[in-house]
Amino acid sequence: MRVAQCCQSRTCHELPKPACCGTETSCTRPGIWECGMAGSLASSCVRVDPRSLSGAVSEPMHLLPCQIQREGAANVKGYFAPAVKDREGGKEVSFRGRTLKGQEVSVPSGYMGVVLREDQKPCSEEEDRLFTVKSTFRSFTQWNLETPPSADDVLIMSLIWPKIAAAIHAPVE
């Protein structure tokens, strides 16, 4: 089952890169579990082990308006989650002494959020890359620096894309 459509067609667009405290995140359409590298001569393939999905737990997700230059686990449960307050204008917290204002955002319907982990990096470009699903999420908290989240935020506007993509690729009657 080599599905390359995801990358070869120009229908799949990358969502803004989240900085979810050191974890790799992406939104995946259920069913597409492999992805060829379009346009490259290398025959390497990105695979996600579907069996890992059943063991994956659902975890709260936070999308921060900054880049943390570090890979690895973060003590979100200790430092961040307990400090989140529900204020008049919505959720509020601070990170490194800066105010963040947030809202809960649902993953577009028909989609599911997954956190992938690559346990072993391939040695060469030809080798396939294998990811396992570490956790899943149906919604996440979008955090803005100081400004309250709104419908005009780039992130919120970008989440309309799956709906449009589905419409323009639907068979013409």
Partner: peptide, 13 residues
């Protein structure tokens, strides 16, 4: 439309 939404074709994973 894509620029405003920061949407880019996914060429590399």
């Amino acid at each position: 439309f894509f620029q405003e939404r920061n949407l880019k074709p996914l060429l590399e994973f």
